[in-house]
Design a protein around this nucleic acid. Structure first.
Lengths: 345, 345
DNA sequence: TTGTACGCGTTATCAC
DNA sequence: GTGATAACGCGTACAA
């Protein structure tokens, strides 16, 4: 396609490129008739402005972006929806971009910020700590949604909106203990994991401690590193192994609803029942956990509120220059049919 | 952030911007020592090139993009994975972008193509027909993955890789009929739907016709337009209504696995069983259908192969200038525990 | 091996 | 209300 440019349109309309630019951007200082004529020609030739050139020239752009880490985040579509809605409400344009697991979202942010002249950025999921220099270099507000992240120099350089994974996980296990369970297995991420999985594990340990249940490390199963983390299949495989190991337990904590579905299936495949033989708890509060059979006891993050709050904070920082904040939401314990009182067999 | 540019780096290094550019792009004709010095300074100041300027200047870029329509496509992450992998293999850069349901992906493609100088584009999901002029204007190969799309002027202006939804849906219903079911309900999209939902409905009608079962329109339930299309909840609500309508049926076709999960739950909530009281079939072949309890009989699209084929065709068109193709894959009937022989109660 | 000069397509600025 | 001009940051011919 020979690129038709603003100059071509200008020539066809018998005006200057400047005037065409004014027509495109709804700038003042252009007569109705000229504008209409230009718009007609633009439509006729389906002229589309080159964004690279626009971004390059524009001083600023009233736009924000959400960078989501990984592809397995089950809340991504909700975040996109809310981000788009809130941005539109304030006449900002909205960009969404995925970040690979092995990329640093802050680097991606800097690149994108230069390219698009972003006014602010939301990290959806991601790291616990960001390089202070880079945050400073970025120079626009950052809100971390679902992660309690901080700057490497300890200063408040970014906001965070999250639930306390340790506390929520603690509550979940506390609930299991309250049902009389003592041998509670858990599926957790490999040792080198420095993410949310670790926090959930810490909550588990804390709850056991409170109930004076000694930790049985044979009941701590590790995710398969070769399978997709937090996938159904991973939950299935690990549970299968756990069951065939012969170790006794009456409850199982699977810190992701998807994995919990896999875990239940593994239990069924062994001819056992949930919750009669094993109580199972998940984590996330996904719709599918509620509709699974049996519905799965889990922790729901109030993701809608968290997303909305993240955007509100971001726009406050952008427009009013307010300081970064840390906001902790409470999770909600959703009691399903996958848990029951402990029964000695 | 005051944008540090290539010129700044050049000044600091005591060389020209050209030389810095060469260092950045690994161009030949630069001494080791100069290059290393420049790279050091770049690292020190964390200089990041401005993509808008690069794209603007670059004649071409060896890059492709996948545009995915909507957010509910359950295969998106698989497509991203394969697209990224295949592009990398051929040293292309890879862009992924979502397209809102109410946007025309072809318009987005044109914009993005100008911005990034794309060499080719894959539409993942999307429309059945694209405007011939715009396809021509776009000027780079387009491959439609999962949709059998065509150009508005009937010419072969884009490739398609897809399964025949009518045939697959037919096979699924044919299977149900083979089990002895005669009263087969279906959940379908509203009448104005011109998408894949309609094709699946046509397959349903065709299968009934073959088995000489008259269509009972009371058994055709419509999705709630106010709920997310193809969501679990929608499947749940519609099935609930269907059950309480008092109409008799022994099998239910829910053309999406997610919705089928909702449907099963609605049946359980009425105190009925799957498959003893109702056989249920889904569509998509998602992992979650396999792990649901009971596992759901469904049609699996060979999405991995389809994605790989789409990329292969795209690169053939880009590099060898081959003509657009249409490739139809066979779906795979996955028989789960959600279907059983018809039993008169 | 390195540097100079120019242009990519657009918009901001200022003059008319 | 409109146009000429410069500049955004970078890559590329071409010259040195």
């Amino acid at each position: 396609m020979e690129n038709i440019t603003i100059t071509d349109i200008a020539r066809m309309c018998g005006v200057s490129a400047t005037t065409v630019s004014r027509a495109i951007n709804n700038n003042p200082g252009i007569s109705r008739s000229t504008k209409e004529k230009i718009q007609e020609i633009i439509k006729e030739y389906n002229y589309v402005p080159n964004n690279s050139a626009r971004n390059l020239k524009r001083i600023e752009s009233d736009s924000i972006a959400v960078l989501a880490k990984g592809i397995s985040n089950p809340y991504i579509s909700e975040m996109i929806r809310i981000g788009g809605k809130e941005a539109e409400k304030r006449k900002y344009s909205f960009f969404f971009q995925r970040v690979d697991d092995d990329e640093n979202e802050l680097d991606v942010a800097i690149e994108l910020m230069k390219e698009k002249r972003l006014k602010g950025i939301i990290f959806f999921g991601g790291l616990f700590e960001y390089d202070a220099h880079k945050l400073e270099q970025l120079g626009v507000p950052v809100v971390c949604c679902t992660i309690g992240a901080k700057s490497s120099d300890g200063k408040e350089r970014c906001s965070s909106v999250y639930v306390d994974d340790i506390v929520e996980s603690y509550n979940l296990i506390d609930y299991l203990c309250g049902l009389g369970h003592k041998k509670i297995a858990m599926i957790t991420s490999p040792d080198d994991d420095e993410s949310i999985g670790k926090l959930r594990y810490m909550g588990y340990l804390k709850a056991l401690e409170k109930h004076q249940i000694p930790v049985d490390f044979d009941l701590i199963a590790k995710l398969k590193p070769n399978l997709d983390g937090y996938s159904i299949k991973n939950g299935y495989m690990v549970t299968k192994e756990l069951l065939s190991s012969g170790k006794e337990f009456s409850a199982l904590f699977v810190p992701s609803d998807y994995m919990a579905i896999g875990a239940c299936k593994a239990i069924f495949d062994e001819g056992k029942r949930v919750p009669e033989d094993y109580s199972v708890v998940g984590y996330d509060g996904l719709e599918v956990a509620e509709y699974y059979n049996p519905s799965i006891t889990t922790i729901r993050q109030p993701i809608k509120k968290m997303a909305e709050m993240s955007l509100e904070i971001l726009f406050q920082e952008i427009e009013k220059g307010t300081a970064p904040k840390r906001i902790v939401f409470d999770g909600q314990l959703l009691i399903g049919q996958s848990t029951a009182k402990y029964q000695k067999n």
